[in-house]
């Protein structure tokens, strides 16, 4: 009995979290190649193109998920209000950890230029970050890395789904849009007022998007 597309569909439908290729292959009474399972899964995922549900590789496993464009509707159904966004500080710290792991707190702080103990603690508590061990230097600082929950939280199959550092917007092409948020408008005005006195360097950004 081979693991048909239908069987895999049933398994993944019944599962409540990502199931890995290894786990799926193990369920088969006769030996199956993981590559064969993957191929069938990809075939199945293709069947779900254009449907309200997608089959996606998340955190090293496969999982049925609703599509992001229907989030609003699903939220109404399950009345989920609890999803708090991560702070900018937390995202920056995570970015450093993900791209530089294994990394120490000192290295993180060197890059961010600010104390990061609190943020790190929060990330550890939310399990987005894990301790990988200790660095073999004086003081044996703890090394941090990203966890499986990190992949799950951001809907990533694995770390290679992230853009490579060199593909991330080159430094000069503008800053994250988030900095154009409402909270920055006031300082922009303040600085602009000073700048105008200096010879009229204005800023061209449009109105900040409504919060």
């Amino acid at each position: 009995m081979t693991m048909t597309k239908q069987i895999l569909e049933a398994l993944l439908f019944a599962a409540d979290q990502p199931v890995t290729l290894a786990q799926l292959a193990q369920l088969s009474p006769e030996p199956v190649e993981k590559a064969a399972v993957r191929a069938t899964l990809e075939d199945l995922a293709a069947d779900y193109e254009g449907r309200g549900v997608q089959l996606k590789e998340v955190a090293g496993g496969w999982q049925f998920l609703t599509r992001p464009e229907h989030g609003e509707w699903v939220r109404r159904l399950i009345q989920d209000e609890s999803r708090a966004k991560l702070s900018r500080a937390a995202l920056e710290t995570l970015a450093i950890i993900v791209y530089r792991q294994p990394v120490t707190k000192m290295e993180i702080e060197g890059l961010r230029g600010v104390d990061s103990s609190g943020v790190l603690k929060t990330l550890l508590e939310r399990r987005l970050v894990k301790i990988l061990g200790r660095k073999r230097v004086i003081g044996r600082p703890i090394l941090y890395g990203s966890s499986r929950e990190f992949l799950q939280y951001f809907g990533l199959g694995n770390l290679t789904d992230l853009p490579r550092p060199e593909d991330i917007r080159p430094p000069l092409e503008g800053l994250p849009e988030e900095m154009q948020g409402e909270e920055f408008a006031a300082l922009e005005e303040l600085v602009e007022a000073q700048a105008v006195g200096d010879g009229g360097v204005g800023h061209e950004e449009g109105e900040p998007p409504a919060a």
Binding site: R88, A95, F154
Partner: peptide, 8 residues
């Protein structure tokens, strides 16, 4: 780093 954070 900020660009990476924005991507995240």
């Amino acid at each position: 780093v900020k660009a990476m954070a924005e991507d995240l």
